[in-house]
Computed example of a mutant assay.
Amino acid sequence: MQEIGEIMHLASSGRVIIKLTRPLDEGDYVCDDSGRKIGKVTELIGPVSAPFASAISLTNNIRKYVGAKVYFLDEPVIKRNKSRRHRR
């Protein structure tokens, strides 16, 4: 897990603005220190020397993450098997 920046604030559109410390691509997921996905990067904004990222929140209580460090997972997140769902 690599630190990529800090959540600055919530935009009026509901997106999260992240100040980046290392380059990131659109479509990447950002997570908190425990590895839980909290956002998906939709666009990069600002100057190349000090970029910001706009991300869609993947959690309902994103306000508690404002001011917190965010990370990028190098390894893929293990997905749960959905074969246990029963059809009627």
Rank of each mutant, 00 (worst) to 15 (best):
E3K: 15
I4M: 01
I4N: 01
I4A: 02
G5S: 03
E6I: 15
I7S: 04
H9F: 08
L10C: 04
L10V: 06
A11I: 03
S13I: 04
G14C: 03
G14A: 02
G14E: 03
V16E: 05
V16M: 14
I17A: 01
K19L: 13
T21A: 13
R22D: 08
P23M: 01
P23H: 04
L24Y: 02
L24C: 02
E26F: 02
E26L: 03
E26R: 13
D28I: 06
D28Q: 13
D28C: 12
D28E: 11
C31Q: 09
C31W: 00
C31I: 05
C31K: 05
S34H: 09
S34T: 09
G35M: 11
R36W: 05
G39P: 06
V41L: 08
T42K: 14
E43F: 06
E43T: 14
I45E: 09
I45V: 15
P47S: 07
V48G: 04
S49I: 12
P51D: 03
P51I: 09
P51G: 03
F52P: 00
A53M: 04
A53S: 14
S54W: 01
A55P: 07
I56G: 09
S57M: 05
S57D: 03
L58K: 12
L58V: 03
T59G: 04
T59F: 00
N60E: 15
I62G: 00
R63N: 09
K64H: 11
Y65W: 10
Y65I: 00
Y65M: 02
V66S: 04
A68M: 09
Y71G: 00
F72Q: 05
L73G: 12
D74F: 11
E75H: 12
I78W: 02
K79S: 10
K79L: 13
R80C: 12
S83L: 11
S83F: 12
S83A: 10
R84T: 09
R84L: 11
R85Q: 10
R85Y: 14
R85A: 11
R87V: 14
R88I: 08
